[in-house]
Design a protein around this nucleic acid. Structure first.
Lengths: 160, 160
DNA sequence: TTATATTCGTTAGCGAGACAAACATTAGTC
DNA sequence: GACTAATGTTTGTCTCGCTAACGAATATAA
């Protein structure tokens, strides 16, 4: 088992079987590439996905506290601080103290924020389409259906 | 109005439409949960996926230089240094200077490393099975088939 | 043969993302 | 008024992917 023998000149770099066989790896690599594409497109305009998540949430629910934003986006409260900071610095959101509850901040989207959301949404629509390009409508449905089921199963706390 | 603060990834508030609609998010969240499960299982025995990747590669190709390991696992050379350090510290691999090329190190798996690989492989087999539990054979094939196609498309450098 | 280029391992560091711990302030309840 | 709970914030940890740079060794071209 610990004897020499071996490659030396094998210039090809095949992926080992045991690695390729892992479903988690397949999923992870696919997601990794996909996210790299999406993140790259967002980064081109100086955004991250947290920005889109917050903006989209504000658009749908209106002014919210940070705790609400955290619950609805899944972003940790601690990470939300930085996200709101960044969005506020660019004038996309406003953060004001809630007069009714002084622990709270009310975060609301500005006009510029609405435009920004439109820009980011367009980017995401575009990249999502490009990513799914090789699939026809039926395959997309199958894929998203399977992924939804998988997500539900895998997100089920208690079983893990 | 609000629920207790915790269960991270399964939020309590409704997920905004624009977020839910993103395919990238679906893929990302699914992969995220999956990897958390896998990483958690590996972490329980003090391992990371890089460890498994290197061990599995050594098992299949025999003693290799770090550059070869990097090529075959996809781990960056710089990150491989730490990985080999860790594995060597635990006695799972040996790192020796290559007498034939003094720039190189020859990394080889020890007996303990072989056992470790068996342990990690068992963990991965188990978690992969659990993850795919809700699917029957035909669905698994469909899912992996679709993911493979997606991976190929999305990993295609040049188009992005 | 000498100069130049390339390879290999290594160190250091960045940034995103997911997450935990602790804390001060403020509200609500007993 | 004391106790508890929620909110926002700071700080820090860890994995992962990725970049830059460097010294040593080797390969190649002039």
């Amino acid at each position: 088992m610990e004897t020499p023998a071996e490659p030396r000149f094998g210039h090809s770099d095949p992926t080992p079987e045991q690695l390729r066989a892992q479903f988690g790896r397949l999923l992870g690599m696919t997601a990794g590439h996909t996210q790299r594409i999406v993140n790259g497109a967002l980064a081109d305009v100086g955004a991250r996905k947290y920005h889109f998540a917050v903006l989209a949430t504000l658009d749908e629910f209106g002014p919210s506290s940070q705790a609400q934003l955290s619950d609805r986006t899944g972003i940790y409260r601690s990470d939300l601080v930085a996200t709101v900071n960044e969005l506020a610095a660019d004038g996309y959101v406003r953060r004001e103290a809630d007069p009714g509850d002084r622990r709270r901040n009310v975060v609301s989207m500005t006009e510029a924020g609405g435009e920004r959301l439109g820009q980011l949404a367009a980017i995401l629509t575009r990249t999502n389409a490009a990513i799914l390009a090789p699939f026809d409508a039926e395959e997309r449905e199958r894929l998203t259906g399977l992924l939804h089921r998988l997500l539900e199963h895998v997100a089920d706390r208690g079983s893990w």
